[in-house]
């Protein structure tokens, strides 16, 4: 090990070979990253908000066990969120996104995506609301006013 290796670079100490192989493997996973994934990951930081209450995802129809999927698949995608104040249910119905707030209240509900696009709507007295469309990419919902809160990011 103390001897200098011969001048032919193809001759390699087996321990060195192992480290080099591992290094190659480690580097390949670093080199394989899509630049646009790096870009998206970095710019996610601009969505850091310290002060809004984060609601919790409590139900996602896609998390239903695989064994009952054939029945579930016929149903629309549904998500539920909860905060200390109440709950927010969202359902994807074709191109529309409907939902309702409990306890029922008239409030502004905003859907936003990471590109900065937003859609806003008002809930009615029963807490029901309806977005006429959706937004591309992961989105989150915010309730403004009483019971204000923001959901985690979800892919609809």
């Amino acid at each position: 090990m103390t001897d200098l290796p011969p001048e032919d670079p193809a001759v390699l100490d087996p321990d060195d070979q192992q480290v080099l192989d591992e290094l190659a493997e480690a580097l390949s996973s670093h080199r394989d990253v899509e630049p646009r994934h790096r870009e998206a990951a970095r710019s996610a930081f601009t969505w850091r908000t310290v002060d809004s209450e984060l609601m919790e995802l409590t139900y996602d129809s896609l998390d239903a066990p695989v064994t009952v999927r054939s029945a579930i698949d016929a149903l629309p995608r549904a998500l539920s969120f909860a905060s200390g104040f109440g709950t927010l249910d969202v359902e994807l119905d074709g191109d529309r996104v409907r939902g309702h707030i409990v306890p029922a209240a008239v409030a502004t509900v905003v859907m936003s995506n990471a590109a900065g696009a937003t859609l806003g709507t008002e809930s009615d007295e029963d807490g029901m609301f309806d977005f006429p469309g959706s937004l591309p990419g992961p989105v989150r919902f915010s309730i403004e006013g009483e019971g204000a809160g923001t959901t985690p990011w979800v892919t609809l």
Partner: peptide
Amino acid sequence: LPLVTSLMRRYRVTGADADDVNQTVWLRL
């Protein structure tokens, strides 16, 4: 990011779907 990328590849999530998963993961973080 290499960990996230290698998992997506392992679960064969590619293209626009991979973009969504990747973005969601980092937004969640």
